[in-house]
Design a protein around this nucleic acid. Sequence first.
DNA 1: CGTTTTTGTTAATGTAAGGTTAAAAGGTAA
DNA 2: TTACCTTTTAACCTTACATTAACAAAAACG
Lengths: 234, 234
Amino acid sequence: MEELKKRILLVEDDPNFGTVLKDYLMMNDYEVTHAKNGMEGFEKFKKDDFDLCILDVMMPYKDGFTLAKEIREKNSDVPIIFLTAKTMKEDVLKGYKVGADDYLNKPFDSEVLLMKIKAIIQRKATETISDSKQFEFKIGRFDLNSKLRFLRFDGGDPVKLSPKENELLRLLALHENDLMPRELALTKIWRDDNYFTSRSMDVYIAKLRKYLKLDPKVEILNIHGEGFRLVIND
Amino acid sequence: MEELKKRILLVEDDPNFGTVLKDYLMMNDYEVTHAKNGMEGFEKFKKDDFDLCILDVMMPYKDGFTLAKEIREKNSDVPIIFLTAKTMKEDVLKGYKVGADDYLNKPFDSEVLLMKIKAIIQRKATETISDSKQFEFKIGRFDLNSKLRFLRFDGGDPVKLSPKENELLRLLALHENDLMPRELALTKIWRDDNYFTSRSMDVYIAKLRKYLKLDPKVEILNIHGEGFRLVIND
DNA sequence: CGTTTTTGTTAATGTAAGGTTAAAAGGTAA
DNA sequence: TTACCTTTTAACCTTACATTAACAAAAACG
């Protein structure tokens, strides 16, 4: 299976340092989005799905703590590492208050940063086993093998799903009977949330409905303005 | 409601440091169980239910990492903080591998420890809150699922509610049998309080009454000039 | 009382979101 | 390159939703 690169949001206003750090991280096989200030950082965060945020504390307009608070409101799960020139205790405390996962004082050893990144991402990964390890689903009379992208009805001939069909159905299955927010699919699968990706998703919902029609007890319901719900009626 | 003290398992072999730390934590309103080594620590862990473990890494017989592994096998959920004299990179990484929630190098600032404890426990708490509590209501013979926006009568077919219907009924349910002020709904749901939003709200009250008519014991009463009251008659 | 204000209810309207199909664009391997 | 598969974009239609208007009924108030 294709191993997906981990995505890091780096928010750092110093252009030199930011660029260097970005390059260093990219050399180490991370996909890095670099935002030059808190405002831009939040915009990018909203539009995408990151595995980790690295925030500079001292920034014009919007400091790292404020940004972290906004990020926490939207997604309480993503790990956050703060970078700061200060070694002030108050700052450390403030960082932990908004839910920092770690803390680094500038200048810092880049190897240490790398290690912390690995450790934190790894921890999240093991915490979320249920999320990453589930590739097989029973959906009414269907079996979905999300690794092989097969959808099989009643043990018969499997249909091959396209990558997007597969991912979307998998996300729905992970939220079986519950709301699968539009936004979630768009950021996770399409990696962008706009009018066109949204319409594209609707097209895929239609395709999935066509596949699933074979079992009348399985349906994808829409919750207007919120998302979709994969329900299995008994 | 009685607020329960959080329980901490402290495993630290240095008797002086351990006692001081225990006292300090107890002064800060935690219930602390102090074990003098890894073996004892695991025994105490098995016998009780803790909100947090603080483990010294360097201990005779059984070091902190080994203990952490055993703890993780039994209860993968409890947060763990490591204390260590070492600042070795390998140790930090090893700690995170067994699922540390945080890490402190001795000597450390006790205030920082306290803050980390608070942050970690609080994080766990918010993670654990099954948000179902704020989104599911029983209203007479109805069930309101406010997240999925449906209203079900006697376990039958659920009716879909529009966002405004849903929010309004939820607000009423939150104030069951009590006054739900007009102004509250208008500011919270309509985000504006004027003649037109007020009339719009009245329209929605009418819609809700239509839905709720199925159960004669449930009614929405008006309190002239004040607001509405969702009552369930016995 | 009559009058004003508030509320009850239904229907009409405009806009936004979603459903569906087909064509265009993009990608990839033979 | 062609051929094939996937994804996006476009077009058109349906449904869902919120607001507003219109008129009726209560309640408050002089």
